[in-house]
Design a protein around this nucleic acid. Sequence first.
DNA 1: AACCCGTGGAG
DNA 2: TCTCCAAGGGT
Length: 357
Amino acid sequence: MRDGLYSGVISELLLSWYDDNARVMPWRVGPAERAAGQRPDPYRIWLSEVMLQQTTVAAVRDYFVKFTTLWPTVRDLAAAEDAEVMGAWAGLGYYARARNLLKCARAVVADHGGAFPTSRDGLLTLPGIGPYTASAIAAIAYDEAATVVDGNVERVMARLHDVHTPLPAAKPELTALATEHTPVERAGDYAQSVMDLGATICTPRNPACGICPLRDPCAARIAGTAPDLPRKTPKKLKPTRHGIAYVVRRDDGAWLLETRPPKGLLGGMLGWPGSDWGDDPAPAPPLEADWTTLPAQALHTFTHFHLKLTVQTATVGPEATANRGQFVAQDQFQPADLPTVMRKVFDLTRQEPDLWG
DNA sequence: AACCCGTGGAG
DNA sequence: TCTCCAAGGGT
C-alpha cells in the first residue's frame, strides 16, 4: 500500500464516523431497523441509485417517495404504462434513465422471476446499471465487497493520496486506490460513508478538513492542496442553439402536443411541436394558422448547449388537423408532465393574458 | 475514447 | 450573472 495508508485504518475511521453521522434518507435502513433484522429492499436501493445518478439527494427525495408510492414493487413498476412513468420522471432530467428504468424492471420480472440478481456481475447485465450502480446495489443490498466509485469517491481518494493527475485520466488510479480501501465487512456502509463524507465534509469547494475523520492521514490536507483536488481537464464551452416552438390551442381548450422520438435529447418525453434546434433552423409549423410570436424567448441550458426558443402561438377551430402531434384534451394535460424546457415554453404563454381570447 | 444526455442549487 | 457540478450510463 502506497503512502503507508493501510486500508483497514481508513475504512475503520470512516465506518466509525458513519455510525454517528449517517444521513437519514427514505431509501436507507436506519440502525434501529437494522438491529431488528431488517435488510434493505433491493428494489428501493436500485431505484434510489438510478435517481441519484448525477443528481443531488435533495432533488431525488420527493421523486423517490412518489415512485415508491405509485409502484411499491418492481412488479408494479414493470406493469406501468410508459407515459405514466415518463410523466412521473418529468423534471428530474436525464430521461434515458427513466426509459432504462422501465426496461430494467421488465427484464427483472421477465428474466429473473421478479427478483434482482444478487451479484455485481449479474446486476451489470441489466439496462441502466453500470459499474457504479452495480457496485452500490451489490454492496448496500447484498453486502458484497464491491468497490463503489463515484464523484465523491474520486474526490476523497484524490485528496487522501494527493493525486494530481487530472480527471478523467486519473480514474483508473483512483479506482485502484478505492479498491484497496474497501473492507470485506460492511462494504455497503463503507460505500455510503465515503459518499456522505464527500457530500458533507470533503466537498468540492471549501472542504471542512478541520472536522474530517480522515484529517490525520490525508496527504492533500498535509500538503495544503485539498481545495484544488481533484484536478480536471478543462471542458468545452457551450454553443448557443436556436429554435421555434409552436403552442396550438383548439377552441375547446385542447393542446397540440407530441411525444418526442424514443432516443436522443428528451427522448420519449412530451413536448410542443417545433423546428430543429441549431444555428438557424427552418420554421416547421405543425399546421396552417395565423401565428402570434411571443415577445420573450424561452431560455434553457442543457448539458452541452444553450437554447433560445422563439414561441409562436395560434388558436384553431374544431376541424383543424396537424401534420405532427395530437390534440390533448384540456383536462388530460398537466404541465408537470413536461420536461423543464417545454414547461418554460408553456409558462411564457401563460404570461400573455389576452392570448387565448 | 469522446461525446451525448437535464436540472436546480451553491458560491 | 455565470460557472461548476451531483450517488453515471449508453453509444
